[in-house]
């Protein structure tokens, strides 16, 4: 297997062929913010938080899908990237109905962590306050679309790992929504196995266990990588939690 040597933020790193820039940065404890990406799931490339600069191109590249080439010079923390990442989180904050103080995942929320990380002390865009529905028909879990950031981790984990494909997306643009089966109450879904994987990978409080009160819903997002590794490579090792 050939090794690729390239530069991230003025330091030399090596990558295995097929690795993405994000994998290399994670292996080397370089932090790049992500949201839709989750170890163990297919890459979606949609949140655009992990975009990096590559010397020689005016374009920005998502670290989660871009593979390094020999001698590539990557920058992950330029002023432009910081400004854009802040604005992306700002857009998310304005898009949903995110009320941290009364949220089940307050303190364990990836969106909240991102907001701290990018320095989102205020939002310059008007809040959209959309009318979104809450689905509490499932016997164990709740889907609150007000808190959804449309990362589609639930869609992917259900399709790729559980194999049930309960979740999908309806509508388009700003009206996109996660739906169960053919847009029916979750509790009536015959495809749902109640495995709870979607709840555990959800970055926000959009999916949570019934009975959880403010700040009580802790998530365990690393277990998917454990399952996928065990299945594909028969390696029963816990490597998770590093990006929590």
């Amino acid at each position: 297997m050939s090794v690729i040597t390239f530069i991230i933020d003025d330091e030399h790193y090596s990558a295995k062929e097929g690795d993405t820039i994000l994998q290399v940065t994670r292996d080397n404890k370089i932090h790049i913010p992500t949201l839709c990406y989750l170890d163990g799931l297919s890459t979606f490339g949609a949140c655009r938080l992990c975009v990096v600069e590559i010397e020689g191109s005016p374009k920005l590249f998502p670290a989660c899908t871009t593979k390094p080439t020999e001698g590539m010079i990557v920058r992950t923390k330029t002023d432009r990237l910081k400004r854009y990442r802040r604005m992306i989180v700002e857009l998310l904050a304005s898009e949903g109905n995110h009320q941290c103080a009364v949220c089940v995942v307050n303190g364990h929320c990836e969106l909240q962590n991102l907001a701290y990380e990018v320095g989102l002390d205020h939002v310059r865009f008007p809040y959209l306050f959309p009318h979104k529905s809450l689905d509490a028909t499932h016997k164990e879990f709740v889907m609150d679309r007000n808190r959804c950031v449309l990362c589609t981790r639930c869609v992917r984990v259900c399709h790729e790992v559980e194999g049930a494909h309960v979740w999908d997306i309806a509508g388009r643009g700003i009206n996109c929504e996660i739906i169960a089966d053919l847009n029916q109450p979750w509790g009536t879904s015959e495809s749902c196995t109640s495995c709870g994987k979607c709840v555990r990978v959800c970055p926000t409080g959009a999916l949570f266990e019934k009975g959880a009160s403010i700040g009580e819903m802790q998530k365990e997002r690393g277990f998917i990588k454990f399952i996928v590794n065990a299945r594909n490579k028969s390696e029963w090792v816990h490597t998770a939690h590093e990006e929590e």
Binding site: F44, E95, P126, R172, G173, I174, C176
Partner: peptide, 17 residues
């Protein structure tokens, strides 16, 4: 805005704003 598919955040929310 109307024709944004809604997959990526910049286009989905950005075009609205």
């Amino acid at each position: 805005m109307d024709e944004s598919c809604g997959k990526c955040i910049p286009c989905r929310v950005g075009t609205k704003h």
